[in-house]
Simulated scan of single mutants.
Amino acid sequence: MAPLKFCANISWLFTELPDFSQRIYAAASAGFQAVEAAWLYDSDLQELQRVREATGVEVVLINTPPGDVKAGDLGLGAVPGRETEFKQGLDLALKYAKALECKRIHLMAGRVPVGSDRAAVAKEMEAIFVHNLKYAADILSKAGITGLIEPINTRITDPRYFLDSPHQAAAILEKVGKPNIKLQMDVFHWQIMDGNLTQNINKYFPLIGHVQIAQVPDRNEPDSAGEINYSYLFNTLDKLNYQGHIGCEYKPLRATNEGLGWLKNYWTQSK
């Protein structure tokens, strides 16, 4: 089997450098052939295109815009009353994705509104999310792009995020029923919310369109001290013949390059 493919999340890695263009160069110099990022929208698109072409680095994933971060937004896909803004954000994400030849967009669900009870608004938010995902699926399919939904844990990272477990995400995907809307598995969030990683990966593998990694509980390098045996997990994904990229979305303990020993060891052992 071909070795697993890793991409640098340049919203988290190489943050020693101030802009995304420099981080793409740094990722390429470190041996990455692909990158992903959360929000590139403050960067000059033509400059990003130029750097991508100069390095040959593939851009494999970006997120839809978060909304008004200062007002507490973190995505709009499931948020009541924000449907028009979600569509506008999708258009912007699509513009960047097309320009960068990126084939995956994380369609962020967003947070339960302040003052609302999660249980009381759950059905309404799910219905809005399903509707928006169906709309996005049709738009993205014309461009050959896959939309992704990602559960984010509500125990540590974001207590108000609407989509917080693989089980909830799978139920929503079933209601959406579009082949180009898939599940983004961030192992960090899955472990915190549900554990049971082996069974959940096997159960939901047919739905998975992208993987991200970080150690639990401190979200550092995969080989740092923590709960997850990444050697085992990589072997599990390899046995399942996972063909996509694995996004390195973690907080380096030191300078990014100093913490890449785990990846260099993997590359060496895979040759």
Score class of each variant (00 low, 15 high):
residue 156 I to F: 12
residue 93 A to S: 15
residue 183 L to D: 09
residue 164 D to N: 14
residue 79 V to M: 03
residue 211 V to F: 06
residue 25 Y to Q: 14
residue 249 E to H: 03
residue 40 L to N: 03
residue 101 E to P: 00
residue 151 P to W: 00
residue 10 I to R: 04
residue 150 E to D: 11
residue 2 A to N: 15
residue 204 Y to E: 04
residue 165 S to N: 10
residue 29 S to P: 00
residue 110 G to P: 05
residue 92 L to Y: 03
residue 54 A to Y: 06
residue 118 R to P: 06
residue 227 E to M: 13
residue 4 L to V: 11
residue 164 D to F: 04
residue 270 S to D: 02
residue 224 S to I: 01
residue 11 S to Q: 09
residue 232 Y to P: 00
residue 114 V to L: 15
residue 101 E to T: 09
residue 144 G to I: 11
residue 92 L to E: 09
residue 126 E to T: 07
residue 187 V to H: 09
residue 221 E to C: 02
residue 240 L to N: 10
residue 236 T to A: 12
residue 148 L to E: 11
residue 90 L to R: 02
residue 191 Q to S: 05
residue 117 D to F: 06
residue 25 Y to T: 12
residue 30 A to D: 07
residue 142 K to D: 14
residue 98 K to M: 11
residue 182 K to G: 09
residue 2 A to C: 08
residue 1 M to W: 07
residue 197 L to D: 06
residue 235 N to W: 08
residue 179 P to H: 05
residue 142 K to E: 15
residue 103 K to Y: 07
residue 261 G to H: 07
residue 37 A to Q: 05
residue 108 M to E: 06
residue 240 L to V: 04
residue 83 E to L: 02
residue 15 T to N: 09
residue 42 D to E: 14
residue 85 E to H: 11
residue 148 L to A: 12
residue 46 Q to G: 03
residue 200 N to E: 02
residue 7 C to P: 04
residue 180 N to I: 02
residue 226 G to W: 04
residue 223 D to K: 00
residue 161 Y to S: 13
residue 237 L to P: 06
residue 237 L to E: 09
residue 98 K to C: 14
residue 123 K to I: 10
residue 147 G to R: 00
residue 171 A to M: 05
residue 166 P to V: 15
residue 85 E to I: 07
residue 159 P to K: 11
residue 155 R to M: 15
residue 121 V to C: 14
residue 180 N to T: 01
residue 47 E to T: 11
residue 140 L to W: 01
residue 65 P to S: 10
residue 80 P to E: 12
residue 115 G to I: 10
residue 54 A to N: 13
residue 54 A to S: 15
residue 49 Q to H: 02
residue 76 L to T: 11
residue 139 I to T: 13
residue 135 Y to I: 04
residue 5 K to S: 13
residue 143 A to K: 11
residue 210 H to A: 13
residue 207 L to P: 02
residue 15 T to P: 01
residue 108 M to A: 06
residue 35 V to Y: 10
residue 68 D to R: 13
residue 133 L to G: 00
residue 74 L to A: 12
residue 136 A to Q: 11
residue 139 I to H: 11
residue 121 V to Q: 10
residue 43 S to T: 01
residue 246 I to L: 07
residue 101 E to D: 14
residue 261 G to W: 06
residue 107 L to P: 05
residue 247 G to V: 01
residue 64 T to P: 12
residue 73 D to P: 05
residue 198 T to M: 03
residue 149 I to R: 00
residue 136 A to V: 10
residue 238 D to I: 01
residue 260 L to V: 03
residue 183 L to N: 06
residue 137 A to F: 02
residue 226 G to P: 05
residue 247 G to I: 00
residue 201 I to F: 07
residue 226 G to M: 04
residue 104 R to I: 05
residue 243 Q to Y: 05
residue 249 E to F: 03
residue 205 F to M: 14
residue 90 L to G: 04
